[in-house]
Amino acid sequence: MTLDWLDAFLITGLFEVVMVIGLALLLHLQLGLARIANFGVVGFWGIGMYVFGVLYVQVDWPFGEPWQFLACAAAATVVAGLAGLLVGWLVADLDTDGVLVGTLGFATAVQILATTQDDLTGGARGMGGLGFPYDIGRVKDNEFLWLVLVTAVVGAILLYVWRVHRSPYGRLLIAVGSNEPLARSLGKPTFRTKLWLFAVASAAMGFLGAMYGVMVRFLDVGNLGVGVTLAAMVGLVLGGTARVWGAVVGVVLTVGLFDIVIQSYLPLPREWYTQAIPVLREAAFGLTLMVVLLFRPLGLLGDMRRDRLMGKIHGR
C-alpha cells in the first residue's frame, strides 16, 4: 500500500474529524431530537478511553490480539453506558440549566478522577503502553487502517441515526423533546426513554473513546478538558442540530477546516502548534457557536422536515 499522499498530520487530522462526527451524531440524538443539552460528551468519551486504557495496560490478559482489544473495548463501552444511565437518571427530569450543570459536572469529575487516580491512570504524567490490535507494517499503515476502522464505526453510527429518524423510536425522541407532558399523556414513559437514550449514546461515546486511545497510544488527562465536547457541540450546531447530516457538515467545516486545512497546509510557525493553536481553536469554536446561535440558530441545514420525510415514506 503506498500512502505517500497521506502524511501523519493528515491521518491524525482525519481521525479527529471522523471521531468528532461520531460524537456529534450521538449528541444529535440527545440535543437535536430529545432536546437534552448534554455538555458532558467528553466525560463519557473519556471514561471509555480510560477504562479501556487501564484494562489494556494494567491487566495481564490470558489471550492475545484482537481479543484483548475487543474485551477491553467491550468493558469500556459497558462502563460508559452505565455512567450514561447514572447521569441520565440524575438529569432526566431537570430543566435545561440543570442538565447543563449536571453533565458539565460529570465531565469535570471524570477529568479529576483520571488525574487523581494516578496509580491506575498515570495521572498528569499520562499513560503509555497502548497499541493497535494488529501489526501490518509501518506505523503509518497501522494508523491508516485504524482510521478506516473508525470511519466504518462512525459510518454505522450515521446509518443508525438515519434509521432512527425513520423509526417509531425517533418519533418518540422528538415527541419527548418537543412536548414531554403531552408525550406522557399518550402513555410514553418519557423518563425511561431519556435514561436509555443516555445509556446508549454514552456507551457509543465510550467506544469511540477506546478507539481514540488506541490511535494516540498515550492517554493524556489534557484530552479530558472541554475541547472534545466543544468540538462536537459547535460542529453539530453549525451544521444543524435537528438534521442527520448536520453533524457531518458542521464538523467537517469546523474541526476539518481547523485541524486539517489550517494546521497542515498553512505555513504557520512551528512554535505555535503547542501553545497558540489549541487556544486559537477554542476561541474560534466559541466564536462560531455564538455567531451561529445569533444569526442562524437552526444551523446551515436548517430545521427538521418531518413533512417531507412523512410525505416520502407514507404518502398523503
Binding site: P168, L172, N179, L182, A183, K188
Partner: peptide, 20 residues
C-alpha cells in the same frame, strides 16, 4: 408537538412501546 406532522402524531399515539 411542534416538530411532528399529523402522521407522526397519530403514529406516535398508536405505536406499541415494544416498537419504540
Amino acid at each position: 408537538f411542534d416538530k411532528l406532522t399529523i402522521w407522526d402524531s397519530l403514529l406516535l399515539a398508536v405505536a406499541e412501546s415494544r416498537y419504540e
